[in-house]
Structures are given as C-alpha cells and as structure tokens.
Nucleic acid binder design. Structure first.
Ligand SMILES: [Zn+2]
Ligand SMILES: [Zn+2]
Ligand SMILES: [Zn+2]
Ligand SMILES: [Zn+2]
Lengths: 161, 161
DNA sequence: TCTGGCGGTGATACACTGTAACAAACCCGC
DNA sequence: GCGGGTTTGTTACAGTGTATCACCGCCAGA
C-alpha cells in the first residue's frame, strides 16, 4: 500500500498542480484552456470535496458568470486526464495529486467532520478484490471504493479538546 | 468470501422478501406499513437497480399517485432495516437478499450491459482495507465498494451470439 | 371518554445535480 | 481566407433529493 506522506504536499499546492496539468496536456497534445485551468485551480484550492455548483459560483464574478454546465465539461475533461476525481457518495470533486498507474485502484478516505478527502491504495485490497470478482465470474471495468469516517487529525482534536 | 449461490434465489423472490421483512419489523417493533410493503415489493420486482422516481411511477395508478418524497421516506426506512441498498454510483436502489452481519462489508457488482446488481463479500478485501485504514490513521464508520463491469451471463452471451 | 403526543403519510415547494441542444467563438492546418 | 474540429456560452430541461406543514390514525395516560 502507499499512503501519500505529507498530506500538505498533496492538496493546497495549487501552483504545482497547475504546472503538472499544463505539462501533461502539452505532452498529450490537448488544450489546457483558461476555463479548465480555473476549474482545476478552484478544485485544488480546498482539501474538501467541492460540488460543481460551488465551483461555478466561486469562479463567477459580477461581470462574468461561469455556468455550471461549463464547469461540468471542464471537470469531465480533467477527470479523463486523471487530474481530478469524482466522489460518488458526495457528488463532489477533488484534485488528484498522484499519478496513478493505469488500472490502479484508489481508496478515498472521506472525513465526516472536517470534510477532507485523502487518497490511499492497497495491493492487498486490490488483490483480494480481483480474486473475489474472478470467483464471481465478473469482469470489472471500473470500481469505486469510498470510506467515510474520522481522519487522524480530527480524532486527535476530539480526544484533546 | 461468500458469494451467494443461485442468483435466482436472491432477487425476483419478492414474496419471500416481503415475508422476511414483515417478520423482521414485527420482531423489532416497527411498522411494516402498506406503503413500505409496496415500495419494497417494487424494488424486489426487478433485479436491476431502480431509481426512486421509477418506483414512484410504478406505484402510481390513475386514481392514486405516490409522490417521490413518500418513496424516499420508505426507502430510508428500508435501508435502516437493511432490506434495501443504495447504489451510490447509480442513484438507485436494490433489494438485499442477505442478512448481513453487522459491520460486514458488501461489494456491489453492477453489470453495465444487463444492469443487474449482485452482492458479494470478501474477508480478504475487508482485512486488507482494515489494515490500510489503520495505517492511514483513519477510523471508518461506513464504506461503499461498487464495481462496474460485465456479469458472467452477459459475457457468455457476448461470446456466443 | 377525552386528549395529547407521536409516527406515518400527503402535498407542495424548493434546492441540488447533471445533460441535451444549438449557436457562437476559437484554433489550426490547408 | 477557408473549412472542419474543438471549446465555450446560453437556454432549457431532466433527474435526484430535502424542507415544511398539515392531516390522519393510533395509543397511552388523565
Ligand atoms: Zn488520485
Ligand atoms: Zn478530519
Ligand atoms: Zn445486501
Ligand atoms: Zn449482465
């Protein structure tokens, strides 16, 4: 398993995130447009999962409104490029600070008190899941694993108030 | 792991499902009202995951309309009692034909071609997940694991058309 | 018997999430 | 410049879920 160490290095490092994204798009011959940049920046600005409408509102300024549909399109693009994840149990989105290996499963750790979403992965879990699916005669194309609970920081905070 | 054998015994056996539900409610001192019965029956009638609005429409007859909000309330009740599951990736609901042990994890196998949803569980996966969460300092309260892919029947059908 | 509480339901309205369709703008190679 | 693909703007709409209040039925307790 790899849990990414130094949680800070991961989220809230929007500039790095943007640079990575731009490089990745250039490399793949895709357009890293201003809208896509802004949406990614907005997602990366918080370590909480954010809804598409929240992002749209955040990007809107009195003179210039960003419609949710535009945000959805940008998010679709960013998800295809592996730059953001969708949290199905929250209908919300987080930036991805990992370059996941293709087919690598991701485990989302969603803190119910602070709302932060962390990513982990586990060869154990993945191996067990593969075996289970094979025994069930099921050929997977995509899977989601989301865990809700209390993150270490919040648990500590609760113990020593 | 236990995969329930005889997929037929599981879904589409609405009468059994209803009898189980009624017994369970009586045992717990809860009301198995006509609305709850009807909603459970509607959910159990298909092996596909069904949306709340589909259920509402199915239960509505010219003279008597069942509002989605009523369906949601019944579904909330049925979920609390462990009689139905919500499939987060589909915003839809399936009947539960298993009496899950408390805290037992469930794996949902969602066929993308026929839409059927099967349940499985795996001690391997659960153990691996527990270890991963502990190492991450995360205390889980609830987790969802949903896999999309092709079920055995559909794969076979595709091979021999 | 009356009455007050309580859980369940009906009904309306509303908030939130996501997509379809079409037009306009943009980019890029010919 | 022209033609064709991609991106964005705009509007409308479909789908999902919740808040609120009123009403009903039941049952315990006065
Ligand atoms: Zn990631
Ligand atoms: Zn937390
Ligand atoms: Zn179940
Ligand atoms: Zn199938």
């Amino acid at each position: 398993m790899h849990r990414h160490e130094g949680h800070d290095a991961c989220r809230s490092d929007a500039p790095d995130m943007l640079a990575r994204a731009e490089a990745l798009c250039r490399e793949r011959g895709l357009q890293f447009t201003p809208l896509r940049r802004d949406v990614l920046e907005a997602v990366a600005e918080s370590d909480k999962a954010q809804g598409a409408y929240d992002i749209a509102e955040r990007l809107s300024v009195p003179g210039k409104r960003v419609a949710p549909v535009s945000v959805y399109r940008a998010l679709d693009f960013l998800m295809e490029q592996g730059l953001v994840h969708r949290i199905a149990s929250r209908n919300a989105f987080i930036p991805c600070a990992h370059g996941h290996a293709p087919g690598e499963g991701v485990i989302f750790l969603i803190c119910r008190s602070c709302g932060a979403v962390d990513e982990a992965s586990s060869a154990d879990v993945e191996g067990g899941l593969e075996r289970t699916l094979e025994r069930a005669g099921f050929t997977p194309t995509h899977s989601i694993l989301e865990v809700e609970g209390d993150c270490g920081a919040c648990r500590k905070r609760a113990r020593t108030p």
